[in-house]
């Protein structure tokens, strides 16, 4: 299974992929996950690759072979849509976070309608998930990633307990309950 996760530095893309990969590990699969740190993370475009199955070689997903692309931001969804396989599915948050050159007025951002039509043209299946909105509703925008994880769980064949355990093992104690709630909310959004 090839899952590519993308978003903007600071959105919790890395924690999302940590949780997904520990969930896959806990059911006995081989797992590889790739990410980058350092300068690449500072508010820039961030992506992580999670692969799991009986045996995984490359830590990177080859373009055109992702079963799932998960995007935390709409522009990033379009940036990585070419990773999808012919039958791949895209889950994307409609949340909008303009890159600095757009904010500075140096370049124009395609409007949301155009982004959406580009997504529809490329993805066999594309599903909107308002994870950011749900996270704000839950009182903490930082759980956008775990809301998204809840939604993603509906599209993968890992048991729910694996995700819940991953959250308990990887999230700071005082945020565990909030994150469990976020997960459930996300699963509901996608259900």
């Amino acid at each position: 299974m090839n899952v590519l996760i993308c978003g903007v530095g600071g959105q919790g893309v890395i924690l999302f992929s940590d949780l997904l990969s520990s969930a896959a590990l806990s059911v006995g699969l081989d797992v590889k996950k790739s990410e980058v740190h350092g300068m690449a993370q500072r508010g820039g475009s961030v992506n992580t690759h999670v692969r799991f199955g009986p045996k995984v070689h490359s830590p990177l997903i080859e373009v055109g072979t992702a079963d799932l692309v998960v995007a935390f931001e709409m522009l990033e969804a379009v940036r990585y849509v070419h990773f999808l396989s012919e039958t791949g599915r895209l889950l994307y948050d409609t949340y909008r976070l303009d890159p600095l050159p757009v904010k500075l007025g140096m370049v124009e951002r395609p409007d949301d309608d155009e982004l959406e039509s580009r997504i529809r043209a490329r993805a066999a299946e594309a599903l909107e998930v308002n994870a950011f909105g749900k996270a704000v509703e839950l009182g903490n925008q930082r759980v956008q990633n775990v809301v998204m994880l809840g939604a993603v769980s509906r599209h993968l064949e890992l048991p729910k307990r694996a995700y819940l355990q991953a959250i308990r093992n990887n999230v700071k104690k005082k945020y565990v309950d909030l994150n469990l709630m976020a997960f459930e909310a996300g699963a509901e959004l996608a259900g």
Partner: peptide, 9 residues
């Protein structure tokens, strides 16, 4: 697509 270079926080 507009690039999204890293930026100061």
């Amino acid at each position: 697509l507009p690039n999204r270079p890293p930026a100061m926080c």
